[in-house]
């Protein structure tokens, strides 16, 4: 099974691709969702829905998600 980081990357790329944006090659814990991954508020909301559909966790429930590492913390 894909590790969580790779899975998050694939979900981010799915969101970017759906929006006609350039996909990214890699992420790390420090990758900034808005600045490094080019996600705007609509994209972040879509990412939230996709993560919730698979992990049943609302990553933005307290509004404190800025990096990929923040998402991983929420999922753990």
């Amino acid at each position: 099974m894909m590790d969580k980081m790779t899975h998050i990357l694939s979900l981010i790329n799915l969101v970017l691709c759906n929006r006609g944006k350039v996909e990214i090659e890699a992420v790390n814990e420090g990758s900034h969702l808005r600045n490094d991954c080019d996600l705007d508020s609509l994209d972040l909301a879509e990412l939230t829905v996709r993560i919730e559909a698979e992990y049943e966790v609302d990553i933005f429930d307290d509004g404190f998600v800025v990096t990929v590492g923040d998402i991983l913390n929420k999922l753990n």
């Binding site: 909301a45 939230t48 829905v49 933005f60």
Partner: peptide
């Protein structure tokens, strides 16, 4: 609409 903490609702 699916409830979403960022946008209120997301269109699905």
């Amino acid at each position: 609409g699916k409830k979403n903490s960022l946008l209120g609702n997301v269109v699905c």
